[in-house]
Structure formats: structure tokens, C-alpha cells
Design a protein around this nucleic acid. Structure first.
Lengths: 189, 189
DNA sequence: CTTGCCTATGCAACGAGTTGCATAGAAGGA
DNA sequence: TCCTTCTATGCAACTCGTTGCATAGGCAAG
């Protein structure tokens, strides 16, 4: 119900093509909302028909032309009205949790490798988030003169990123808990 | 890709009807995997056709008869093979994060009420989880004689619940961070 | 020179999930 | 008495998201 809105936000932060949006969804925006390029193209077309976005053909040399999308007035209005209506607090879809409870009816040892894999993946995500934070928010380069006006967009992007960091840290701690529990249940004789 | 597996785990823990499963999905299992009754009935029918579950008609007095499902050998095998194959580390779908970044292009003040609502909902979830932990795992009633064999299923259910608790605590702390950030951006003059 | 990757856009088919509606008897409160 | 809630099962329509495939030029490595 909200891919449109994620795209609107991303295009407001920076206009771009479907392809560029797809890459952003692999990075910043995608940290808390994923989308494949097929889906993005389909939704962009619908948004164009609804007058939410404007398109501009951008010829390029050495690579295919692209269509640069930007947010139209109708799109801005749609985003605004969505921001004013309540959304449900999210609920988790956690395959791994199902597997862990399922392990009671199988050999818990088979899960150890899987949990370690997830731990690795989350550890890499955390490293990426922290690098992004250092680069964009807390690094020396990122610091601006004290007189500069506080930038609401920057502040809000940062607090969302802090959420991602907190999530990954919590998940890593939990996965360690899971591993300790599994090792207790499977004493390697 | 895994509602079937969540149902199999739930039925292995305790056989039951579609209606009972739907209620479990509102409680324990549903803490990390949600499903509506319509979906559950549809999937149960498919699982029955595939021979993953057995059905038994249970006549009741004073209320409609029910169909009690239990896991068949094929279902157990399907669960086992799923447990042995890797799943992708989950990625978040967080409407609120999109809204927060979107607030940069609208009035951030409108979000404060929404964030407080989410805070309230997560606070209630945490209270429910903690009550469940006290009741089933750490309470005096729950304690069993030291000589009792360690129950793998119980241990695994508990570590999953600890994950839910950690998630809610982390989310509450983050929402406080978000609220502080929003109040900083909207100094109520 | 061929193989594979990167940019760039898109269709078609399928599967998963949501929303709305329907049925039906029993129990309990206004 | 009527209205709502609870138990219990299910269909139909729709939207959302994934997977597989297709096209096509440029660029770099082997």
C-alpha cells in the first residue's frame, strides 16, 4: 500500500529514472522498504497515468536514454494526505523465527549454520549503515558551520538510519542468544 | 513462501482446527508471522490435497463441528527439507520510516501524534510479551523440578519470545529518539 | 573475439495476501 | 425481543510482489 509513497519520497529527495530508483531501493530507502525494478517500472507507469509524476526524456551518450521522473503537484498532494492518515504499526515476517520453533521437531544442529549465515548478513548490514552514518552525518566532512540552518531532511534521514543501526545491533545480540541456546541443546560430544 | 511451514510448526506443537490456528496467529505465532483466517483455510485445503496434513471431523455440542488438522508424514518431511535449505535474511517493511523521511516535505508536526500512537501500540505489545514470558517461562508456576529433562521445544519458544521482547524494547527506544528529533525540529513556540 | 557485466526499459505469468461478503447456531446483554 | 459476539467454515475479487524472460548498446577482461 505504500510503494508509491516510498517512490514519491525518493523522487522528492532527488529526481531520477526507474533504474536509479531501483538502485536506491537497494541502498538507503531499501534499508526499510524493498522493491524490484520490475515493480518500480510498473508503479511509475501508473503514477504517470495518475499525474503524480512528470517525465522528461534525457538522451545520454554511450548508454541508453533514460526517463527522468519528478514529483508533480498531484503526487505531492497524495503524499501529504498519506502522511496525515494513520498507518498500522508494522508486524514482523520472520522466517528464521518459524525455523527456530520448527527445529524442536527436527535436529536443532542443522540450524546452527543457518543462524550463523544470518548473523554474518546482519553484521555486514550494520557495517554498511555505520559507514553511511560516518560518511553522511557524523564524519568530519559532514560537519557544517555552526551557523548553518538545521536541515530537517538531514535530521530525519539520520534518525531513520539510527533506527536501522539499532535494529541490526538488536538482531545481532538476539542471534547470539539463539546460537547460545542451540549450542546448549546440542552439546557437541 | 512459508505460511505452510508456520502452520506445520503450529500443528506439530498442537493439532487444531483452522479457526484455532487463526487465533494462534493472533497470538504466539503471529508475533512474527501474521495470517488471516481466509488465508489459513485456503492453505489448509491445499496442504490437505498435497497430503501434508490429516483431517478428522470433530462433532461438538452447542457449537459448529470442527475439522481438526494434524501433521502427516509428508508434511513432516516438507518441514524438514525446508529447515535444511537456507532462507534469505528478512528485510524490513517499515511504513513509518517512509513517513518520517517524507515529513521533510510536509509539516513534521503532523507526525508527532502518529509516532506516539505507534509508541503506544509497541508498548502494549511489549507488555503482552512480558506477561507471556512470566506466565510460561520465568514465573514460579512455570518452574519445574531440576531433575526434569530440558525441553528443546520450550527453550526454542522462549528464545523466539526473547527476540520479540528485544525487538519491542529496541523499537520503543527508537520511537523516543524519533519523537525527540521531531520536537527539536518543531519547537512549539 | 567472445563472454559477461552494466545501463536502461519493459511484459507475462504466477503466487501471496487483503478485503468484502456469506452462512449458521448458540449465548448473553439492552 | 433484538442486537451483538463467539464459534466455525468458506468463496470471490482484487491488489501486491516475485520470477522468468526479452531487448539492446557499450565496456572491460580473458
Amino acid at each position: 500500500m505504500a510503494i508509491e509513497h516510498a517512490i514519491l519520497v525518493s523522487l522528492l529527495e532527488q529526481p531520477g529514472s526507474g533504474y536509479e530508483l531501483a538502485r536506491r531501493f537497494e541502498r538507503s530507502i531499501g534499508y526499510f522498504w524493498t522493491a524490484s525494478h520490475q515493480q518500480i517500472y510498473r508503479v511509475l507507469k501508473r503514477m504517470e497515468n495518475d499525474g503524480w509524476v512528470d517525465v522528461r526524456d534525457v538522451p545520454q551518450h554511450g548508454r541508453p536514454d533514460k526517463k527522468e521522473y519528478s514529483v508533480a503537484d498531484l503526487g505531492r498532494a497524495a503524499l501529504s494526505s498519506w502522511l496525515h492518515e494513520p498507518v498500522e504499526p508494522e508486524s514482523l515476517r520472520h522466517d528464521l523465527a518459524v525455523k527456530i520453533r520448527g527445529a524442536a521437531f527436527d535436529d536443532p544442529a542443522t540450524l546452527i549454520g543457518e543462524v550463523e549465515r544470518h548473523r554474518q548478513a546482519h553484521s555486514e548490514r550494520l557495517a554498511r549503515y555505520l559507514a553511511g552514518e560516518e560518511r553522511d552525518f557524523t564524519g568530519a566532512e559532514a560537519r557544517r558551520p555552526a551557523a548553518a540552518p538545521p536541515d530537517a531532511g538531514r535530521e530525519l534521514q539520520h534518525v531513520v538510519l539510527r533506527g536501522g543501526i539499532a535494529y541490526e545491533r538488536m538482531t545481532l545480540a538476539w542471534l547470539d542468544d539463539v546460537l547460545a541456546t542451540l549450542h546448549r541443546l546440542v552439546p557437541e560430544r
